[in-house]
Computed example of a mutant assay.
Amino acid sequence: MPVPDLRFPAALARLVARLPSRPASQAFVTLLNLAHRQGSLAGEWDFIGNRQVHIGVLDLGLTLRFGHDGKRFVASRQDAPDIRFAASAADFLRITLREEDPDTLFFQRRLVIEGDTELGLQLKNRLDALELPRFLQNLVAR
């Protein structure tokens, strides 16, 4: 079942954009670290190093800020990312479920990638190589 092209209301995005990003970023890195410990994020991620990654969910007004300290993912407070990915929540879900290729969305200008190109390519390639968790495989199979 394809992901519908739904958008969060602009009023919600304005509200979320005013909230501190640290709690959402901390929750996100907690999930990343849990997935890594369980083997869902196989491989080494220390190539991120002290560089900062931002993921912007445009229609939600949310920016997730994180990095990697050589052992684990860590939330960040820095405003200046080394690499920034931005798209709508629906497009990020399409990428996650492998309904859309990130390159296609990039060339359609629905996925914004700004900053360190080499880091962006390393992240994209690493994410493309990951096996979907079982619960997502079940969603895709439907």
Rank of each mutant, 00 (worst) to 15 (best):
residue 1 M to I: 09
residue 3 V to Q: 09
residue 4 P to C: 14
residue 5 D to A: 15
residue 6 L to I: 15
residue 6 L to N: 14
residue 6 L to H: 15
residue 6 L to G: 14
residue 7 R to M: 14
residue 8 F to L: 15
residue 8 F to H: 09
residue 9 P to M: 12
residue 9 P to A: 15
residue 9 P to S: 14
residue 10 A to T: 11
residue 10 A to I: 13
residue 11 A to Y: 13
residue 12 L to E: 06
residue 13 A to Q: 05
residue 13 A to L: 06
residue 15 L to F: 10
residue 15 L to D: 05
residue 15 L to T: 11
residue 17 A to P: 14
residue 17 A to F: 08
residue 18 R to V: 05
residue 19 L to F: 04
residue 19 L to E: 08
residue 20 P to K: 02
residue 21 S to L: 02
residue 22 R to E: 01
residue 22 R to Q: 05
residue 22 R to S: 04
residue 22 R to M: 06
residue 23 P to T: 07
residue 24 A to H: 08
residue 25 S to I: 03
residue 26 Q to P: 07
residue 28 F to Y: 07
residue 29 V to N: 09
residue 30 T to L: 14
residue 30 T to I: 10
residue 30 T to F: 13
residue 32 L to N: 06
residue 33 N to H: 12
residue 35 A to W: 04
residue 35 A to H: 01
residue 35 A to F: 02
residue 35 A to T: 01
residue 37 R to I: 08
residue 37 R to A: 09
residue 38 Q to V: 05
residue 40 S to I: 03
residue 42 A to E: 07
residue 45 W to V: 01
residue 47 F to K: 10
residue 47 F to A: 13
residue 47 F to V: 10
residue 48 I to V: 15
residue 49 G to V: 07
residue 51 R to Y: 00
residue 51 R to S: 01
residue 52 Q to T: 06
residue 52 Q to H: 10
residue 54 H to Q: 15
residue 54 H to Y: 13
residue 55 I to D: 00
residue 55 I to N: 01
residue 56 G to C: 07
residue 57 V to P: 02
residue 58 L to I: 11
residue 60 L to K: 09
residue 63 T to W: 03
residue 63 T to V: 11
residue 63 T to Q: 08
residue 66 F to E: 03
residue 66 F to D: 00
residue 66 F to K: 02
residue 70 G to W: 13
residue 70 G to K: 12
residue 71 K to Q: 13
residue 72 R to P: 08
residue 72 R to S: 15
residue 74 V to W: 04
residue 74 V to Q: 07
residue 74 V to Y: 04
residue 74 V to L: 08
residue 75 A to H: 10
residue 75 A to F: 11
residue 75 A to E: 12
residue 76 S to A: 13
residue 76 S to H: 09
residue 77 R to P: 06
residue 78 Q to F: 11
residue 78 Q to E: 15
residue 78 Q to I: 06
residue 79 D to A: 14
residue 80 A to V: 08
residue 82 D to L: 08
residue 82 D to H: 11
residue 83 I to Q: 13
residue 84 R to P: 06
residue 84 R to V: 06
residue 84 R to N: 09
residue 85 F to E: 00
residue 86 A to R: 03
residue 87 A to K: 00
residue 88 S to V: 04
residue 88 S to M: 12
residue 89 A to Y: 11
residue 90 A to P: 03
residue 91 D to S: 09
residue 92 F to I: 03
residue 93 L to T: 03
residue 93 L to I: 06
residue 95 I to D: 00
residue 97 L to F: 03
residue 97 L to G: 00
residue 98 R to I: 09
residue 98 R to V: 07
residue 99 E to H: 12
residue 99 E to Q: 15
residue 99 E to V: 04
residue 100 E to C: 12
residue 100 E to P: 10
residue 102 P to W: 01
residue 103 D to E: 13
residue 104 T to F: 13
residue 104 T to P: 07
residue 105 L to E: 01
residue 105 L to Q: 06
residue 106 F to V: 10
residue 106 F to Q: 10
residue 106 F to P: 10
residue 109 R to A: 12
residue 110 R to M: 10
residue 111 L to V: 02
residue 111 L to E: 00
residue 112 V to A: 14
residue 112 V to E: 14
residue 112 V to G: 14
residue 113 I to Y: 07
residue 114 E to N: 12
residue 115 G to R: 05
residue 116 D to N: 11
residue 116 D to S: 12
residue 120 G to P: 12
residue 121 L to Q: 00
residue 122 Q to T: 06
residue 123 L to Y: 03
residue 123 L to K: 05
residue 125 N to I: 04
residue 125 N to E: 08
residue 126 R to D: 04
residue 128 D to Y: 03
residue 128 D to E: 07
residue 128 D to F: 02
residue 132 L to V: 00
residue 136 L to C: 03
residue 140 V to M: 02
